[in-house]
Simulated scan of single mutants.
Amino acid sequence: MTMDVTIYHNPECGTSRNALALIRHADIEPKVIEYLKTPPSGDELAKMIRDAGLSVREAIREKGTPYAELGLDDPALSDGQLLTAMLEHPILINRPFVITPIGTRLARPSEVVLDILPADAFKGPFVKEDGEKVLDAEGRRIV
């Protein structure tokens, strides 16, 4: 299937690996951006967050990051200050962000990516790394 898909990916993250595998299961080869090596620009990051319907705070990763050390839990910080911190420390960007012509999502959990891929693209089952079944034998989402 031909579809312009971009994933801001961290290969060390199981959720990110599962989202990438789901995209590829739809027979789509996305543009993979390892955002820790090649972070988005401030404008790109702000647009991804906005297009995903998130607040900047919702797009920040706390676990395994310098979030607390940087005092980012301070409610007085502006979106601009939070974005600046995310750009200075890309590990603070929650992942994976996936962009398709259908929409943009922070694919947490990874099966959220199904919302922005063609429903008829899946042929057969899909199981996440941890064994959780996501698609049945006919490629339909398991709820």
Rank of each mutant, 00 (worst) to 15 (best):
I7M: 08
M1A: 14
T15N: 08
P11E: 04
R50I: 12
I102A: 13
E34S: 06
P75Y: 01
T15K: 05
A59M: 08
K128A: 15
S55Y: 08
A107L: 14
D79E: 10
E132R: 14
D27N: 14
M3L: 15
H25Y: 05
F122T: 05
L106G: 02
R105T: 15
P118H: 15
A52K: 00
P125A: 15
A21M: 09
G124N: 09
E138W: 00
A19N: 05
L70P: 03
P90Q: 11
R17A: 08
I60Q: 03
K63N: 07
E132S: 11
H25C: 08
R57S: 11
R108P: 08
R105S: 08
K133E: 14
I142K: 03
H9M: 02
A26K: 05
R105L: 10
G124P: 06
G42W: 01
D43H: 12
V134N: 03
L77I: 02
F126N: 11
V127F: 12
P118K: 14
D51R: 07
S55M: 05
K133F: 08
E34Y: 03
L92W: 05
D115R: 09
P96E: 10
V113L: 04
K128W: 12
A76E: 12
I116A: 06
E129Y: 07
R108I: 13
V127M: 14
M86N: 11
V32L: 05
Y8P: 02
L114H: 02
A46L: 12
F97S: 07
K63V: 12
E44I: 15
E111L: 08
K123L: 10
A46N: 01
V32Q: 03
T65A: 11
D74K: 00
V56T: 01
T38P: 04
A107H: 15
V143M: 10
M48Y: 10
T6P: 02
R95M: 09
E132D: 07
L36R: 13
D130F: 14
G139T: 05
D115P: 12
G103S: 09
P39Q: 10
P109N: 09
R95L: 06
L87P: 00
L82P: 02
S16N: 05
I33H: 04
V134I: 15
G42V: 00
A46Y: 04
E12F: 05
P96I: 12
L117M: 00
K128R: 15
K47Y: 09
T2A: 14
E138A: 12
I99K: 06
S16F: 04
Y8S: 01
R61P: 01
R108F: 13
T84G: 12
K47F: 15
K63A: 11
P90S: 13
